[in-house]
Simulated scan of single mutants.
Amino acid sequence: MNLDELKSAWQVYDQKLQNSQLLTERLIVGMIKERSKSRVAQIKRENTWFFVLMVFELLILGAIFVGNPFDFIYQVQFLPYIFLAIGIIMALVAIYRSNAIVNVDMNSTTLGAFLQHVIHEYEKNKKLEGRFGLLMLASGCMTVLSFLPKKLEKQDLVSALVDTLIPIGICLFIYYLAFRFGLFNNRKSEGFKEDLRELETLSRELEGV
């Protein structure tokens, strides 16, 4: 084999190697993309069920405001349920935003740009979700207090206060555990972060080839 034939054979081999690397890259990117699409579909399903639950709770609150089933004496006793209604409206806004974040045509942009967009937007939403948790905490404690006037009709002041403070303490402890273990934290971005890390690792490996 002369030098020209050797060069030609090497060029053919090099082209096959590049094609193989390109095929591998497209295959891995395609797998990451399908996984991201699966995450989007799961988020939309969860948001749908959460939306139905929030609307149902809002209807129950509407019935409480209109029918006063607990026989509240003072208007201030409805305040916790107003806070709860505000929290539910905040949750509905968060659901709308969540769907808007992932409602992007992945074929109209690069996978990396899509993942960065989703992660950035979900990180911005964390403040709203933190406020939602605090509002639920305030509403839970105030709901217990709303029954204090009814208890005072049947109990003396000390026993009524003790009977109220115990469930408030339990409520605070439950919410402490919820905050402590991050139950109010949005983890929707974590899977997309994992996909982005894998995509960036692939890009660095290909650049080093």
Rank of each mutant, 00 (worst) to 15 (best):
L23A: 03
V162G: 06
K37S: 11
I101V: 12
N185H: 10
L137N: 00
I101C: 05
V66D: 15
F173D: 12
I32M: 06
L196W: 03
F70H: 00
M54H: 07
L161R: 06
S98Q: 14
L172M: 13
G182K: 12
L172N: 08
K124G: 00
E34N: 13
L17V: 00
A100W: 08
F70S: 13
L6M: 08
T164Y: 14
L161E: 02
V102C: 01
N68R: 10
K124L: 07
S8K: 15
I89N: 11
N68L: 01
L148V: 10
M136Y: 02
Y81E: 00
F114H: 00
L92H: 05
F179E: 10
D156M: 10
K150W: 06
I101D: 02
F78N: 01
A91N: 07
I86P: 01
L115T: 01
F50V: 01
L196N: 01
I32P: 02
F56V: 04
R197I: 05
M1L: 13
N99F: 05
L134K: 10
L172R: 13
K154T: 09
V118K: 05
R197T: 08
S159N: 08
I82C: 07
L59C: 13
V104P: 04
F78Q: 14
L3K: 04
V12D: 12
Y96G: 03
D71P: 02
L152F: 07
G133L: 02
D71T: 10
L111W: 03
E153I: 14
F173N: 14
C141D: 10
L206K: 11
E121L: 11
L152K: 09
G191Y: 06
L152P: 11
K33G: 06
F192M: 10
F51Q: 10
L161K: 06
V66Y: 15
L199S: 06
K150H: 08
N99T: 07
Y13D: 15
F132M: 09
K44I: 07
Q21G: 09
Y13C: 14
K127G: 07
I95D: 04
L128P: 04
L183I: 04
L177Y: 00
F50S: 05
L145Q: 02
K37E: 14
Y13H: 15
Q77G: 04
F179I: 10
L148S: 04
L148G: 03
D163N: 12
T110C: 09
C171Y: 13
T109E: 04
K188C: 04
M31D: 07
F179W: 03
L148C: 04
K33A: 06
V55A: 02
M142C: 00
E129N: 14
T143Q: 11
N2A: 03
D105C: 03
N185G: 03
K188G: 12
D71A: 14
M142Q: 00
K37F: 05
I32S: 07
I95K: 04
F51W: 10
M136S: 00
E200A: 12
T143S: 12
S203N: 15
F51N: 08
G140K: 01
D163S: 14
I60M: 10
L202S: 03
L177H: 14
L157Q: 15
V102S: 08
